[in-house]
């Protein structure tokens, strides 16, 4: 179990003026599964490589249980990185790939064979040891890569986009496998992804990195309920941002005076609420109930997206298709937003 601490970590690549990563700080409690989330090129993989010792930071520090590891060689850090494209050694059998780390530690071949067998059982590929990686499917290669990493019992496991190359049905299988192995072995695990869904389904906590800077570091649900700013909310699929002024209890804006939950920010800002939290019909106490005109109805199969006009502004809502079957563009509609689902940024 290793507590990983990243302090003001910065990377400026030679020849570039803009840092790829700008003073990132992060505490990853031991045994937790943390996602570094952000769009391509935001510095996620750079961060992982610096934790693994494969890249030197320009400034800042990485500590494991309070001890700086920056001077440690990659092979001495106890950090194993699993790359997005798996990178199984193509000229070795699956068993040799899995046993690679043990062979490098000069473990007895009989012992390697035994542990490789156990590991292949654990990732549910017991009979494929003799095959070459090219004869495996993407999902199987991913498992072999995971087995190759876990066999050396790392203190910290780094996963680069672990689910993104997999089909939808394999994603959940792999998610369960990663989570169960990680919990069982208690390995502090960090993975990077550009896909917020991947981050939410897999991680205990998510660190959102935009433009080389950390925006927010929280449990996944907080990003939906209490985003720190508009960019963060938008990254998680937020659509409604209505400028106005907050007095802490109500928000005065183009929607009128809207009641806020406790703890909302004061002063000028933007009211935000998720499209799926807009309800059709009036609330029981009449709070936050509005009259809207339907601008557009977009049927998406399991849900329907509505573009609504409320006074001078537009609001997006996502509702169950059955609820609005008979409605068309131009129709009038009563909606409400429960107070607890609103937030000021």
């Amino acid at each position: 179990m290793t507590h990983v601490s990243i302090k003001e970590l910065t990377k400026v690549y030679p020849g570039s003026r803009v840092p790829s990563l700008d003073r990132l700080s992060l505490e990853i409690p031991s045994g937790e599964l943390t996602a570094l989330l952000g769009p391509s090129g935001c510095g996620k993989t750079t961060t992982m490589k610096m934790i693994a010792g494969l890249l030197e930071p320009t400034s800042g520090d990485v500590t494991f249980d309070g001890r700086s590891v920056l001077r440690d060689k990659p092979e001495d850090r106890g950090v194993v990185m699993v790359f997005q494209n798996y990178l199984l050694f193509p000229y070795m059998s699956v068993a040799d790939n899995v046993g690679f780390g043990l062979k490098m530690r000069k473990i007895d071949p009989a012992e390697i064979k035994r542990r490789v067998g156990e590991m292949l059982d654990l990732v549910k590929l017991p009979d494929l040891g003799d095959r070459k990686p090219s004869a495996l499917s993407g999902g199987q290669q991913q498992r072999v890569a995971l087995a190759r990493a876990l066999i050396v019992q790392p203190n910290v496991l780094l996963l680069d986009e672990p689910l993104s190359n997999l089909d939808a049905h394999l994603r959940f299988e792999m998610r369960d496998l990663i989570r169960s192995l990680q919990q069982e072995m208690g390995i502090t695990t960090i993975f990077v992804t550009h896909d917020q869904e991947e981050a939410v389904v897999l991680a205990d906590r998510v660190a959102l990195i935009l433009d080389g800077q950390m925006k927010q570091y929280d449990r996944a649900d907080v990003f939906y309920k209490r985003p720190v700013d508009e960019a963060t909310a938008r990254f998680f699929g937020g659509h409604n941002f209505i400028p106005g002024t907050s007095d802490g209890e109500t928000f005065d804006c183009a929607l009128g005076r809207v009641a806020l939950p406790e703890g909302a920010a004061l002063g000028r800002g933007k009211l935000t609420f998720r499209p799926e939290n807009v309800r059709i019909g009036a609330s029981t106490n009449g709070e936050n109930t509005l009259q809207a005109t339907i601008v557009d109805v977009i049927y998406l199969g399991t849900q329907t997206r509505l573009k609504l006009r409320v006074g001078e502004t537009e609001v997006e809502a996502v509702v169950n298709p059955n609820e609005i079957e008979s409605y068309r563009a131009g129709d009038e509609l009563t909606i409400h937003m429960p107070k607890s689902t609103l937030w000021v940024i």
Partner: peptide, 10 residues
Amino acid sequence: ESVARSLGAS
């Protein structure tokens, strides 16, 4: 090579 280093190879 990065993979190998992180798996413990010198």
